[in-house]
Amino acid sequence: MGKNILIIASLANSLSHFRGDFIAELIKQGYTVFAAAPEMTKKNIDKLSQLGANPLSFDLDRTGLNPLKDLKSIQQLKSIIKENKIDLVFPYTIKPVIYGSIAASLCKTSTISLITGLGFTFSGASKKAKFLQQITKRLYRYSLRKNKLVIFQNKDDLQLFKESRILTKKQETDIVNGSGVNLDRYPFRVAQANSRNVKFVIVARLIKEKGIQLFMDTAIELKKVYPLAEFHIIGGQADPPSGVNIDAIKRLDDSKIIIFHGLVNNVPDFLKDMHVFVLPTFYREGVPRSILEALSIGMPVITTNTPGCKETVIPEKNGFLIPAKSLDPLVDACRYFLENPSIVERMGQESRKLAENKFDVNIINQHLVEHINDVLN
């Protein structure tokens, strides 16, 4: 008889978008997959059902720290685990990992957690961020202690968990190269940039920590000298305090300094016409999925020399790593492509090679499934 696996996420969209291939692979291996997230829409349910998963909804306050709401989340997850006779819980992102692990522990159910970056709490230097960091560390420490395995997406996050004594000395851990990318869904294309007319693009939630403002400031600086250069922003609005002022973005769009697309459903179609992918983030990423998609399509990448991002670039081979929160190095890196447009094609080919050798979703999912097989058998 097949075993039951519960995958828990904080965003329903991410289950099909980031974990769709993983869910399909688990089902192919004979597992019954339940996929749980808050605020499931009909579209989410349909997508997950088409994959062969059983969609489930539970309440989750994704941002705040409200003990009553958080207890409710744990209780609901506990009920889901018991009612569906779950054999293994697989949560990812902060709150699902913490609450999913606690619920599984109360039900004496095996858990493998996936740490997909440490987010705002570990990125910010404000008093609030530092306060949240201390609470989050304690919650991680308490919830992960009975996990069979904790998987990270980069070695820096694993090191931080060890140094902060979040993990016990006996804790089993591993590292995978992000969530992987489906190489067929993001097919390679050869892009030839014309002199002075290079198209730069950022794909990200419109939050300050992703470096959106730095990208806009770079566009303002370079458009003075290279009026034909294009700076494209793709992404959905985010709430304050992290959300970037949407009116400022629209003003730059109106004055033709940037081209703002908002949230789009067909990212691969947009990327295939772009030349250079930019992500000047100072957010604690796992490995940014947006960069992996750009690598697969065959784009040079400019990103920050920070955990999760530095794994995606071999400097001067497929792009550039720049210091976080620094405008001048970003301007210089973009200017390099404007002055050397012929390099776009060669660096793009190196990006695709990196995607094939290191970030292919099939390699990563096989690795995860082997761990699940080990724990359940």
Rank of each mutant, 00 (worst) to 15 (best):
T136Y: 10
T136R: 07
T136D: 09
T136G: 08
T136V: 15
T136H: 09
R138E: 14
L139R: 05
L139N: 06
Y140P: 12
Y140V: 11
Y140I: 12
R141S: 14
R141M: 11
R141E: 12
R141N: 14
R141D: 06
Y142H: 12
S143R: 02
S143K: 01
S143D: 09
L144V: 01
L144D: 00
L144N: 01
L144R: 00
L144T: 01
R145H: 06
K146E: 07
K146W: 01
K146Y: 01
L149A: 09
V150P: 07
F152P: 13
F152V: 09
Q153P: 08
Q153C: 10
N154H: 09
N154Y: 11
N154A: 03
N154T: 01
N154E: 01
D156E: 08
D156T: 02
D156W: 00
L158G: 12
L158Q: 15
L158A: 14
Q159M: 13
Q159T: 15
Q159P: 00
L160H: 07
L160S: 11
F161N: 13
F161V: 14
K162Q: 14
K162S: 13
E163S: 06
E163T: 08
S164H: 14
S164R: 15
S164K: 15
R165L: 05
R165V: 09
I166V: 15
I166H: 06
I166R: 05
L167M: 11
L167C: 11
L167Q: 08
T168V: 05
K169H: 05
K170A: 08
K170G: 02
Q171D: 02
Q171R: 04
Q171P: 00
Q171A: 04
T173A: 06
T173M: 06
T173V: 14
T173P: 10
T173G: 06
I175E: 00
I175C: 01
I175T: 07
I175F: 04
V176H: 04
G178N: 11
G178F: 05
S179D: 03
S179W: 00
S179H: 02
S179A: 04
G180C: 04
G180H: 07
G180P: 03
V181D: 08
V181H: 05
V181I: 09
N182A: 10
N182D: 14
N182W: 08
